[in-house]
């Protein structure tokens, strides 16, 4: 009897957790979808072993669906092309993906839900995205993106 319960209950449990993760991702997506475009002012500090780069005053421009520009007001700045993923619109609204529940973790004192996004497109640049979501505030506190390409560092 025990075996019957476990074999039937387990897939349902997995499905329910995956569904919860998908709902959570959708809620975060709804929140950031409120932003159609923005212009922001900031300071950028670059720490790369072989480059000495001073702290730069930058302007960030974003426009849906996936345009992001980081502009250094004085001189050039080096930013990896995958830095477009600092804008979560680019991660969450970039094509179709499967959502997997990867459990929970802690960032500082905050308990976060860990969710993995697997692109359905085999040829997508992004192989895997892992999001650490604060389920109460509905914001992403950390994301990890794995790309399948070696790409040049973009600079502006």
């Amino acid at each position: 009897m025990k075996k019957i319960i476990s074999s039937y209950a387990y897939p349902g449990f997995i499905f329910a957790r995956a569904q919860d993760a998908a709902i959570l991702v959708q809620k975060v997506k709804d929140k950031i979808s409120l932003v159609n475009n923005y212009e922001a002012n900031g300071k950028m500090k670059t720490n790369i072993a072989f480059l000495k780069v001073p702290v730069a005053t930058v302007k960030l421009y974003f426009k849906k669906p996936d345009q992001l520009l980081i502009k250094n007001e004085k001189g050039i700045s080096f930013v990896p092309k995958t830095a477009v993923n600092i804008n979560l619109n680019n991660v969450l609204n970039n094509g179709k993906y499967s959502v997997l529940d990867a459990g929970a973790d802690k960032i500082g004192s905050t308990v976060v839900a860990v969710v993995k996004l697997l692109p359905e497109d085999d040829n997508a640049d992004v192989v895997l995205s892992t999001l650490y979501i604060d389920p109460l505030k509905l914001v992403v506190l950390k994301s990890k993106t794995t790309t399948g390409i070696t790409e040049p560092m973009s600079w502006r």
Partner: peptide
Amino acid sequence: GKVEIAIGSYTI
């Protein structure tokens, strides 16, 4: 490598 961006204000 690490890039740190501190954003002071947004115009949304």
